[in-house]
């Protein structure tokens, strides 16, 4: 499965909930304000660091650049919209709106 998360983890529990309902091997894609979850050294970095033990975690480059986010948690993969489409090809999708 592919889970998309579009909310900042500082304002909203979507990322935490998503992680509670994922199965090992599921992919997680952070988009829009969700990309803040991939930032290294924050009060919420532990969420994605923990997720990386069982999941591939992707982050959308256009949203990263728009937010001037450069320092990412190690292991997070940066992808573009074409990569987003690839992930959708490979997986059933649930959006954690």
């Amino acid at each position: 499965m592919l889970h998309t998360v579009n909310k900042s983890p500082f304002m909203n529990q979507s990322l935490e909930s998503c992680l509670r309902f994922t199965q090992s091997g599921d992919a997680i894609l952070l988009i829009e304000d969700g990309v803040y979850g991939a930032a290294a050294g924050t009060g919420k970095s532990a969420l994605v660091e923990e997720a990386l033990k069982n999941h591939q975690v992707y982050v959308l480059s256009a949203d990263l650049k728009a937010r001037a986010l450069t320092n990412l948690i190690e292991g997070v993969k940066v992808t573009d919209y074409a990569g987003f489409v690839d992930l959708v090809e490979q997986n059933l999708v649930h959006a954690w709106l």
Partner: peptide, 17 residues
């Protein structure tokens, strides 16, 4: 439980939030 929900989600054709 959430684990049961996660398993059900994985079986779907599509999921609409």
């Amino acid at each position: 439980d959430s684990s049961e929900i996660a398993a059900m989600m994985a079986e779907q054709h599509n999921i609409l939030p």
